[in-house]
Write a protein that binds this DNA or RNA. Structure first.
Lengths: 161, 161
DNA sequence: GCCTATTATATAGATGTCTATATTTATACG
DNA sequence: CGTATAAATATAGACATCTATATAATAGGC
């Protein structure tokens, strides 16, 4: 089941190496968590919806809008070609339709289909217990405070580019 | 330069959407930071060393050992085929050699070459200023505390699999 | 009006990651 | 001893992500 870390001594330790700077270790943990969370999400989603794809559906449905590929890419903080790829997958699954703009024929607006809405609702239900379990498993954690610090860190890294 | 988020209102806000659970937003930020940090690292590394590749060199050199692909995969918390791929790239760059085990011919031990050591030293020097800048840019942040919480979160997610 | 610059999207090629599976070698048991 | 199981690595096929570049269409300047 856990094929990657049967060794408790490393599983329960901080990531990275003793001599690494603390901030480097933080980034190492972040990288690992990102991968683990992605896969855990997709494991809960046998319907074949990836986290990237869910993100797009969730985004559009919450806002209740149609958006261009560029707008969605910006909102999700990914490059435009990445979003082109994700939208293409969603189109193949009939979870979104591409609505051409009659005034500007370069533009296609992404519109979630009823099947897409249903898929997103299933995803939310499938993931909720896992999120609750994480919350329960970290009683003392102040996620709001951490969110604030992570956001600062993200903006800082982003500003350097 | 920044082709993904010229819109300050979104760049300076928390990631995710207002209605998302806090923990979900945390994971969203983590995913974004992971990508940003990866690319920033590789941008500083024109010598063509990726973060994954650096991680292997750094790991082996700090410990001063040779390890099998499986051991390295476990230490870096990635699946074995991922590590096979990374080691293959390092081999092509002559940054590591594969030493066959005469007693167990299934095993190959990864050994960093002098060129690999030099590449890692260059990487450390190239990244240090960036890490310092991040530290300076977040004066009030308690990275040690955050590392502790991230580690708990990572272990929790890991245990669910 | 025409040529140029900008914008929106798509394509190509690379990396890392995963799961599932194949291959090779070692170990264990009847 | 021979067969079956286990272990270490490799291969195949998917995704997501990136950068660089191509294509198409709008907008602007002369």
């Amino acid at each position: 089941m856990n094929d990657k870390n049967d060794d408790l001594s490393s599983a329960e330790a901080e990531a990275g190496l003793p001599g690494d700077p603390v901030l480097f270790k933080v980034l190492t943990e972040i990288s690992i968590i990102s991968n683990l969370a992605d896969r855990e999400f997709e494991r809960l989603m046998p319907g074949g919806l990836t986290l990237a794809q869910f993100g797009v559906l969730n985004h559009l449905l919450r806002l209740g809008v149609q958006q261009t590929i560029g707008e969605i890419a910006s909102a999700m903080q990914v490059a435009q070609p990445s979003m082109s790829s994700t939208v293409k997958k969603l189109t193949e699954k009939n979870y979104v339709d591409l609505i051409p703009d009659t005034e500007d024929r370069r533009v296609k607006r992404v519109k979630v289909t009823p099947a897409g809405r249903a898929a997103r609702d299933r995803a939310v239900k499938a993931v909720a217990p896992g999120l609750a379990a994480l919350k329960d498993g970290t009683p003392g954690a102040d996620w709001k405070a951490m969110l604030g610090e992570l956001t600062r860190l993200r903006i800082l890294i982003d500003s350097v580019r």
